[in-house]
Design a protein around this nucleic acid. Structure first.
Lengths: 339, 339
DNA sequence: AGCGGCCTTGAAATCGGTTACAAACGGTGC
DNA sequence: GCACCGTTTGTAACCGATTTCAAGGCCGCT
């Protein structure tokens, strides 16, 4: 490949001048500029990113960290669109994306440590409240630019997340709007932020309809399908008209429990889930649920990170974004019945 | 961060010597070596990958190219485990993975062109016979090290793929073994390599049982669920006992068509699919199918690529790997009935 | 004519490593 | 004692860019 030097010689100028032209710096004579541009064109020259990276100390590479401990993430509906969002947004701003799986195995894992201060200018970390994480706080403490996808209470890094509370409220209000009054809910582990937020939204909705929260109608589960099934079995004793389930996965478990009890969805019990996993539209009946703007999440994470990277003074702006969700009405809520 | 120079001063040697120690080159006095190692340890020094990349002209970054035109790939069951396989294998050999989506829009897309000869030492390209691709052959022609996942007839790059023919044969033989004789098949577009291979396998199986291929029992579709449904409707007129469907997606369509005709799977018609998509185990009845070693595909692609990268003479070895598949017996084939 | 200042440009240092080459050293063989 | 040799180390060039600083040319002004 042609180098800066080749271009300089071809154009009869110094390397410094060529560099100026390439980087669009002011103070280059227009004539000289066109001469340089012509040479660049003729030689089909492209600046060598590695050399540039060495000189500028910025590689225009951002990392994406995904915990390996949660291998499920890879089978998940979440990972591909998120990654797509990240890569697209990054490419649009001239950045490359480097993928890094990392585990939590403490210092043994010098991999991630060498990754940082290595190629990446900064990184987007997918955090799951389900796992403790030693690495991320350390990286952040070392001043490595980090943006998290999902909230992680122990860290105050900029983050993007969906508005779980508002989403849950919307879902619940939908059930109320179409006439259900005796509402139950299946939550995730109540010591995690996400289930807390979604439960807040549930209560918000009840409150706005002047309905008191009945503790017997609130059952906690572990976010798995089986957990949802068990929780629903318990909930059935309370004979709710409708149930807001905090995740589609659990909702599918609930569906099975309802069926097993000889009841029908939505005629006997209406169901609303959360997440809009691909399976949600495929079960019988299809789940009404809350869709997350996953790809947008990736986009915004990139914006946030680049904002930090490119204007270092700006760190106070745009922290902790919350993106709106969308209600997807299908059959499980019984809305169609009332039309 | 500490640099090579710092280490050299701390250890009282020259930078060259430190470099030798780091790279494990012979011809360093053991005493000196330990002195250097101690200094490295004390300063918590790590070689700067960018600087190293500039000097050696190897970045230890490999790319993964995924076509954006097939955005479906991102929603697909294929992408996450493949990527996981690639990243893991790469990390195991000290390589980083850079993700690149690319479209096919010809020269407009200078993105990929700049990517090449940029950071990446080489790349793994996911090819889909469903799309024509201008970029990949050009990159290869320019001498850029490339390994494809999936075969692409127009290119003779090293590749990894599943053994479609053997897999299809296994699937079909399974139907024959459990007693079915009048077999139909739903194929993908017959001008593409993958459907051709799978159909070969189907015929291999029939042949090994001495059964002639009846053209009326071979119906072509477009690999979609709807296509599978339509194809099955046509196939129903021929009253097959069992059908080998070239993809789970089409098989699910076929399932619906059979149901719509008032028939039962597997009692009236047995079904075997291919791919083992996540949905395959969730439909009613669960699909018997052929599982692909997707993660392993990623692993092997990396091995192949690094083989090319690290011993450039070796290019003849290990081209065009075919990985074995696995029969997953569930309910749709009716095997359980015969037990 | 002399001076200050603006616009352009180039020389050279720098980023943090690798590596070709030469030199210093102690030991052998004759 | 000398030529030779292998081991170990250092010097310096190089990878391909950016960037600081100074200098040259040209202008107008006094």
């Amino acid at each position: 490949m042609a180098t800066l030097k080749d271009v300089a010689e071809a154009a009869g100028v110094s390397r410094a001048t060529v560099s100026r032209v390439i980087n669009g710096q002011a103070g280059v004579n227009p004539e000289t500029r066109t001469r340089v541009l012509r040479a660049i064109d003729q030689l089909n020259y492209r600046p060598h990113p590695v050399a540039r990276g060495l000189a500028t100390k910025r590689t225009r590479i951002i990392g994406v960290f995904v915990p390996t401990t949660v291998t499920r993430l890879f089978l998940d509906h979440f990972f591909p669109p998120l990654l797509q969002g990240v890569v697209q947004a990054a490419a649009g701003r001239g950045y490359n994306v480097m993928l890094s799986l990392f585990s939590d195995e403490g210092d043994r894992d010098s991999y991630a440590h060498s990754v940082h201060n290595g190629y990446m200018d900064g990184a987007i970390a997918v955090v799951s409240a389900l796992m403790s994480n030693v690495l991320l706080p350390r990286l952040q403490a070392e001043g490595f630019p980090l943006v998290t996808v999902g909230r992680w209470p122990a860290m105050d890094a900029p983050s993007v997340d969906v508005d779980n509370r508002a989403g849950a409220r919307t879902a619940t209000e939908h059930l109320l709007r179409i006439g259900h009054r005796r509402l139950g809910t299946i939550t995730g582990p109540r010591d995690l932020p996400m289930p807390q937020d979604r439960h807040q939204g549930f209560e918000d909705a009840l409150r706005s309809y002047g309905i008191p929260v009945d503790r017997r109608l609130v059952v906690e589960a572990d976010l798995t399908e089986l957990g949802g099934m068990v929780a629903m079995q318990r909930l059935l004793e309370e004979k709710p008209e409708a149930v807001f389930v905090q995740s589609d996965t659990m909702a599918i478990g609930a569906l099975k429990a309802i069926r097993a009890a000889g009841l029908r969805v939505p005629q006997d019990i209406a169901l609303v889930g959360f997440d809009d996993i691909p399976l949600a539209s495929l079960v019988e009946p299809p789940l009404t649920t809350i869709r997350q703007p996953i790809q947008l999440l990736g986009h915004m994470a990139v914006e946030l990170l680049l904002d930090v990277l490119e204007n270092p003074g700006n760190k106070n702006a745009h922290r902790q974004l919350q993106l709106p969700t969308e209600l997807v009405v299908r059959a499980s809520c019984g809305a169609l019945r009332t039309r």
